[in-house]
Amino acid sequence: MIPGGEIGTVQVTFLDSSLHLIEHQCCHCVSREDIATIIGSALFAGAAGIMLTQHFDSQEPRPTPDETAWTGRLFVACEPFDLILIDRIIFGPKTHFSFRERGYLDH
């Protein structure tokens, strides 16, 4: 976790129910307080889903426990609004880490 409560810079993409792009916010600094902002922006855009991507310089792109907990809080916060956290993918130089593929975003 980055000092000050931030988990890092991510790309936030809002998609419709057919997974078509509605809006993309580049370099969105995400902290614990930004969950409400992300959900509000998704609702304002008329999105059905949210996709997060992030780039790490490390060879093994693995989230910290705080990043995993934050992603879980966003996942739970989406549910009352019928929003889907489609995935959060962390890209490294040669590999990636997908929260969906690893089972973190299953009910």
Rank of each mutant, 00 (worst) to 15 (best):
I2M: 10
I2C: 08
P3F: 03
G4L: 02
G5I: 04
E6I: 11
I7P: 07
V10M: 07
V10A: 09
Q11W: 09
V12L: 05
T13P: 04
F14Q: 00
L15R: 02
S17I: 15
S17F: 06
S18W: 09
S18L: 15
S18A: 14
S18I: 12
L19T: 10
L19C: 09
L19G: 08
L21C: 03
I22Q: 00
I22R: 02
E23H: 09
E23L: 14
H24V: 15
H24M: 14
Q25F: 10
C26Y: 08
C27S: 13
C27E: 09
C27A: 13
H28T: 15
V30L: 11
S31M: 06
S31N: 10
R32L: 13
R32Y: 12
E33D: 13
E33T: 08
I35F: 01
I35K: 01
T37M: 13
T37E: 13
I38Y: 00
I38P: 00
G40A: 03
A42L: 04
A42Y: 01
F44M: 14
F44L: 15
A45V: 08
G46I: 05
A47M: 04
A47D: 01
A47H: 02
G49W: 07
G49P: 01
G49Y: 06
G49D: 06
M51L: 15
Q54K: 14
H55W: 09
H55F: 11
F56P: 04
S58T: 12
Q59T: 07
Q59F: 07
E60Q: 14
E60D: 13
P61W: 03
P61A: 07
R62E: 11
P63N: 04
P63D: 03
P63E: 02
P63A: 01
T64H: 07
T64K: 08
P65Q: 10
D66R: 12
D66C: 12
T68N: 09
A69H: 08
A69W: 05
A69S: 12
W70G: 05
W70E: 06
T71Q: 04
T71K: 01
G72P: 08
L74V: 01
L74G: 02
L74I: 03
L74Y: 01
L74F: 00
F75K: 05
F75T: 04
V76F: 06
C78G: 03
C78H: 02
E79I: 15
P80G: 05
F81I: 10
L83Q: 01
I84P: 00
L85P: 00
L85W: 01
I86G: 03
I86H: 07
D87I: 02
D87F: 02
D87Y: 00
I90M: 08
I90T: 08
I90R: 09
F91H: 12
G92Q: 03
G92R: 04
G92W: 00
P93H: 06
P93L: 08
T95G: 12
T95P: 08
H96L: 15
H96N: 14
H96S: 15
H96I: 10
H96E: 12
F97W: 04
F97Y: 09
S98I: 01
F99T: 07
F99L: 07
F99I: 10
E101V: 07
G103E: 01
Y104K: 11
Y104T: 11
Y104G: 11
D106M: 14
